[in-house]
Simulated scan of single mutants.
Amino acid sequence: MTEIRTPRLILRRWHDDDLAPMADINADPQVMRWVADGSVQDLDQTAEAMERWEEEWDEEGFGLFAVELLASGELAGFVGLSVPEFLPEVLPAVEISWRLGPQFWGQGYASEAAHATLEFALQDRGLDRVISISAVGDDASENVIRKLGMVLERETTHPVYGTALNVHAIDLTEFHA
């Protein structure tokens, strides 16, 4: 089982008891504001998403990690790697993304987990490049992206929702682990 420990977090595969807290995160309009069309997701949609995330682990050898606080065992959300099939113009590519509950914002958890995930991509999975896709205006994600050393590669538009997107990239041979 793939697990990464950072000073404050455990990045791990998904457990059944992660469903309710992840569904709470996905049901928060503040969290989902920058995701797809901004719609919240209910318990069933979250369960389906978690199944897809686990399938990606099995098929690709990487996926979205559940992010657990080491001190309390709380699920903070996810950080991980996926293939951004919704944006065919960037394929083939692997994307790093994150989604944390608002009570975990502003504490450096996303940056800590994302940094560990980039190390995983480079050292354990042998990837040489990772991208991150953010909605224009999502300043919090842009801040994490900058901390990771990623640079703007292109501006584009979501092919379904028409929202403006920024695509950032990092060559992992230049990533400072």
Rank of each mutant, 00 (worst) to 15 (best):
G63D: 02
A164L: 14
E48N: 11
V151E: 14
E155N: 11
V136Y: 07
W57N: 04
H168Q: 09
K147P: 10
A140L: 12
V94K: 05
A169N: 01
G106C: 07
E112R: 09
I96Y: 15
S134W: 12
E85D: 14
Y109E: 09
S97Q: 01
A71V: 05
F104S: 12
E153T: 13
Y109H: 14
A49Q: 13
T46Q: 06
V160C: 01
D42R: 05
G73F: 04
A140V: 08
A47V: 00
G106L: 04
I25C: 08
S132T: 15
M22H: 14
Q41A: 10
A66Y: 08
D37A: 11
G137K: 02
S111V: 04
H115I: 06
A36C: 05
R154F: 00
L75S: 01
E51C: 06
N166I: 02
Q107W: 07
F104H: 12
R129K: 06
R129E: 14
A49I: 07
Q123K: 13
V160F: 02
A113Q: 10
D42H: 01
A121N: 00
V136P: 03
S39L: 05
L91K: 05
E59F: 03
V167A: 03
L122W: 03
K147M: 07
P84C: 09
E95Q: 10
V35Y: 15
A113T: 07
L100S: 12
E56D: 11
R154I: 06
G38E: 11
G63L: 07
G38N: 02
A66D: 02
Q123I: 06
V31F: 00
A121M: 01
H158S: 05
R125S: 09
F120H: 07
S97L: 03
L87G: 09
V130C: 05
A135N: 11
Y161I: 12
V79D: 05
W34H: 15
R154D: 06
A110I: 03
W98P: 02
G63Y: 05
V40N: 01
D138Q: 14
T117Y: 13
S141I: 04
F120L: 03
L81K: 13
